[in-house]
């Protein structure tokens, strides 16, 4: 146990895939706590019955189902750190994954 702020930083960092070590967490913890304390003013407000605003635009623009040219593979895979025979290469990733079975979680 490092204290609630530091623990919170470490747990949140794991979720965000940030490799924060204990030293960094000790610096970030108080900053994190200070910011949240400043934000606590929000709890004063009663928002019962108020609709949230998450997207500012209200009209949805859509597209028709027409195929448009994809990009040449090299223009995208060519930018990758480890292109392999037209694939994106990454360190071996089974069996554990965040979610879902092979063939797409969703």
């Amino acid at each position: 146990m490092e204290g609630p702020d530091v623990d919170l930083v470490l747990e949140t960092a794991a979720l965000a895939r940030l490799e924060v070590d204990a030293g960094e967490a000790r610096t970030l913890g108080p900053q994190f706590a200070a910011i949240l304390k400043h934000f606590e003013v929000l709890s004063e407000l009663d928002v019962e019955g108020v609709e949230p605003t998450s997207v500012v635009s209200t009209e949805l623009q859509v597209r028709t189902d027409e195929v448009r040219p994809s990009m040449p593979r090299d223009a995208l895979v060519g930018n990758a750190p480890d292109p392999r025979e037209g694939f994106y290469g990454v360190p071996r990733a089974i069996p554990k994954r965040d979610a879902g079975g092979q063939g797409g979680q969703s």
């Binding site: 694939f87 994106y88 290469g89 360190p91 089974i94 879902g100 797409g104 969703s106």
Partner: peptide, 27 residues
């Protein structure tokens, strides 16, 4: 509704190869 993910092919060796042709297919 949601979008599909791509496909990860796990090689015999130490790599996984990713194909994104399926990424974004409607489900």
């Amino acid at each position: 509704m949601e979008e599909d993910a791509g496909k990860a092919v796990h090689d015999a060796g130490n790599t996984t190869r990713v194909d994104l042709n399926r990424a974004g297919v409607p489900l």
